[in-house]
Computed example of a mutant assay.
Amino acid sequence: MRRNSSRGKTTIKRKPRKKPSFFSAKLLRFSLITFVVVLFFGFAYHYREGLAYYFGFKSNKIQFEKAEAKRISDVRNYQVLENHQGKAIGLDVSEFQGTIDWTLVETIENAYSLNFVFIRATAGSDREDKKFKENWLGAKKNKMIRGAYHYYRPNENSLEQAKLFIKTVQLQKGDLPPVLDIEKLPKEQSLKNLKIGLKRWLKAIEGHYKVKPIIYTGEKYYDDFLKEEFSDYLFWIANYNFYREKIGGDWLFWQFTEKASVSGIKGNVDVNIFNGDVEQLRFITLE
């Protein structure tokens, strides 16, 4: 006799899913829109001075300047300069800026005087910057406080690099201490050997010029590899991040942008802030 296979089974009735109410969906959209609006106005308020400058609210007119006019490329740069009024402002240049008309290099934004300039002298063990001599003399004639820097190549002999810099650069009274520019990690040696090479370069340069060199590098490189072991040196730090608006307390110089425009110089140029005023800057120059 055939049995009914459905006997004994219990049928479970599922409750239908509740659809999101029109009110909750509308509330979610309203919250997102409100967040975006608040974020936008918060940004606009924070950068109100820079925005006002660029849209002409301060002068009640929008100024359309020529390409060679003194302009900072974005609002952040103007905001940074506003935050550091009273501190010495300067540039750093190399052959990549081409021929510079030093008689026109005076201010940024027609408001911030340029007090100093770092000029690339050498790179590695065999490369003299093509425009070094020209820039070195031009900056002097323009009565700018000047300094020379060496671009360090990690995989080349450190003492040969030091010899090239010494051969190329003759520092005078009133010049800034020499600068070691280190930006890359070695490919053919260990980090330990890199640090040994850096120390050899620094000691050779200090022995020749009788002044402790300055080290230039990026903020992350500084934090990860140099901050502790080279703590007895002064640092010039590069950081272009949007959130960074103040110079670090332990930084001697801060390169805060690579996209500034200055009359007399074609294309973009780096701008730097010294952690002090002009008189304090003169205090660290060679005697």
Rank of each mutant, 00 (worst) to 15 (best):
M1D: 14
S5A: 03
R7H: 15
G8C: 00
I12C: 01
K13L: 01
R14C: 03
R17T: 11
R17A: 15
P20E: 00
F23L: 00
A25I: 08
A25C: 07
A25P: 02
A25E: 08
L27M: 10
S31D: 04
L32M: 04
I33W: 08
I33P: 05
T34N: 02
V36I: 15
V38Y: 04
V38T: 06
F40D: 11
F41T: 13
G42A: 11
Y45S: 15
Y47F: 15
E49G: 09
Y54S: 01
S59K: 05
N60W: 08
Q63I: 11
F64P: 01
E68Q: 05
S73V: 11
S73N: 15
D74P: 03
Y78S: 06
Q85F: 03
Q85W: 07
Q85K: 14
G86K: 01
G86D: 12
A88R: 02
D92R: 04
S94W: 08
F96E: 10
Q97V: 14
I100H: 06
D101I: 06
T103I: 00
E106K: 14
A111R: 05
Y112I: 14
F116Q: 08
F118V: 14
R120M: 02
A121C: 05
T122Y: 07
G124H: 02
D126N: 11
E128K: 02
D129W: 02
K133C: 01
N135K: 04
N142K: 03
N142L: 03
N142Y: 10
M144N: 08
R146D: 06
G147F: 07
H150W: 07
H150C: 08
Y151N: 05
Y151P: 05
Y152S: 04
R153T: 03
E156A: 09
E156I: 11
N157I: 09
N157Y: 08
S158P: 12
E160L: 04
E160V: 07
Q161E: 15
Q161M: 10
L164F: 05
F165I: 00
F165D: 01
K167G: 10
T168G: 07
V169W: 07
L171P: 05
D175L: 00
P178A: 09
V179G: 08
D181F: 03
D181E: 11
E183R: 01
E183F: 00
E188C: 14
E188K: 12
E188R: 10
Q189I: 12
Q189P: 10
G197I: 14
L198I: 15
W201C: 13
L202S: 06
K203E: 15
A204C: 11
A204Q: 15
E206R: 12
G207N: 15
G207K: 04
H208T: 04
E219W: 00
F225K: 13
E229F: 03
Y233T: 14
Y233W: 10
L234G: 09
F235Y: 14
Y240C: 15
Y243A: 12
Y243T: 09
R244F: 08
K246P: 02
D250Q: 11
W251C: 11
Q255F: 06
T257K: 14
V262L: 02
S263H: 02
K266E: 13
N268W: 03
V269L: 01
V269G: 00
V269F: 01
N272C: 13
D277M: 15
D277S: 14
V278T: 11
Q280H: 13
R282E: 13
F283L: 01
I284P: 08
I284Y: 00
T285N: 07
L286G: 07
E287S: 12
E287F: 04
